[in-house]
Structure formats: structure tokens, C-alpha cells
Amino acid sequence: MMGLISYLVFFTTIASILAIAVLGLNLQWGNTGLFNGGVVAFFGAGAYGTLLLGGAPQADHIGGFNLFYPLALIGGAVAAGLLAWVVGRLTLHLRHDYLAIATFGVAVTFENIMRNAQGFSGGAKGLRGFTRPLEAWVNDGLTYNVLFLLVVSVLLICTYVFLERLIRSPYGRLLRAIREDEIAARSLGKNPGKIRLAAFITGSCIIGLAGGLYATFYAFVSPQDVLPTLTFQLWAMLIVGGAGNNRGAIIGTFLIWAAWTASGWSLSRFAPVELQIYTGTMQFILIGLVIVGMLLWRPQGLFPERLVVSQSGRKKN
């Protein structure tokens, strides 16, 4: 029973952290139409950033500034935002798919550097030496995890409320206007480039925040945590939930994360031993099928957004 509860706490914590990342992604793709092909780089920037800033000094690499935890977390998010600023400045004025290519390249490069830059990231063995905040005060592991889950949930709710307010504000309407018809938005005297850059950076900061929480939870991050797998998972979560719909994004995250862990568990449990090495392979095929299938047959997601001005207008005519 305790085992089940502690697993549920663990599951919910990871899913909530990923949900924050998916909300950030939703601001980029769902609300602004920006394709981020390297979500994991921004997630990783937050993760590495937080641990480098908040961790204890290490002999073999830089970092370990022992920063007050909330500041370290914010620092991680800022690191993700800075990365987004650089990529956005270089690509957002070009054809829309340049952003996809550049972000994809950033993710490959980010993982590559984290794996190789021993003196900075700890290399392949990852970044250790981080003590989770207040851990010394809470003796019991489960209690700590429950408390951590509470913090994560509060941050998830805050992110949700922030984004809901944002997209309902005039600024949010502007984002949609740009996504639907850039030329019209420009003719209204708005500068779509600037607005898209701001949305891209904001989304990336949120993704970085999720990365920071993720690394905090494990008190550890390694190049294995920033593989492209995560990008695909987050994408599947968003498309299942429905691009543009924040509530759907959260539900989609829980669904896909449950499906992913369940499929991994059942494949490893019931599949013949010689097929076990193909567990990941089959899971990737499933993720690919979810993405393609949703785009083909239900592009609005399982929980489509209700607030699409132009489409309802079109129907009435």
C-alpha cells in the first residue's frame, strides 16, 4: 500500500513537471505557431542551470555556487530563456521551418556538449553534488516527496493561471492573430517578429523551469536526461491534449506519461526476453504513430480549444 502511494506520488510529480514543460510548449506551438524541434535543450538548460547554480562546489568542474534554491531555479529558467533568445534572434525572421531546424540542432549540440564538456557539466556521468532544498529538515523520504509534489503542483497551477490570463489578454489575442494571419497582424502596425520572439522566450523559460524541477527531484542530471526522446514525448503530450488548449495539454501529459510508463512496464514484463531490447523501439513507434495519427485524424487534439475566433466566425457565414 505504501509502495503504491509512493509510486503514485512519484508518477504524479514527474507528470506534473512534464505538464509544466508542455504548457510552455503550448505557448510556443499552440498559441503562436512556433515549432520547437529541440524542446529538450531548453529543458536541459533549466536542469543543468539549476544544479550548477544551486549545487555545492565540486572539485572537478565549475559551478556549485550554492545559490539560494529559488534563485537557482529561476536562474535555470533564465538560462533556457537566454538560449531561446539567441536561437530566436537568428531564425524568427526567416522562413518558419528555420526555427525547427535550428532548435533541433541546438538540442543535438546541447546533449553533445553536456556529454563532452567534463569540466562544465560533469560529462557522461552527469552532474552530482546537489542537495535538495530542506531535505535535511524532513527525515522521511515519502514525506519529502509529498511536499515536493505540493510545490510542483502549486507551480503547475501558477503556470496554468499565468498562461490562461496571458492568452485571454490583448497580448494573447495578438499571438493568435499572428498565428492565423501574419500579414493582417502586420498591417495593424504590430511587429510580429518581436511578439513571436517574446512568446518563444517565455515558453522556453517555462520549459526551463520544468527542467529545473526535474533535476531537483532527482538531485542529478546527466546527458541521458536530455536525449531527443523527451522532445518527442512532450510533443505527443501536447498534440493529444490539443494544441492551444492549456487544460488539454495537462490532461494529455498525464495520459501519455501513463501510456509510456505502462507500455514500458508491460513490454518488459510480458514480452519475450529476446524482444526486450526492442522495448524502446516499440515505444518510439507508438509515439510516432500518436503524433502522425493525431495530425491526420484529430489535429485539434482530444480536447480541442474552445477559443478559436476565426473558425467559429467562418462557420456562421
Partner: peptide, 21 residues
């Protein structure tokens, strides 16, 4: 148009892993 890039990610994932299988 925007979803084409997205779909191509999914297609790549399927082809690569089906070949592996």
C-alpha cells in the same frame, strides 16, 4: 502548412524504429 514539419518528426520516428524492429 506548419504541421508538416511536426508530422515529419513523427514519420522519421516511425521509419527509424520500424527498420530497427
Amino acid at each position: 502548412e506548419l504541421s508538416m514539419v511536426f508530422a515529419s518528426f513523427g514519420v522519421a520516428l516511425i521509419i527509424r524504429n520500424v527498420l530497427g524492429l
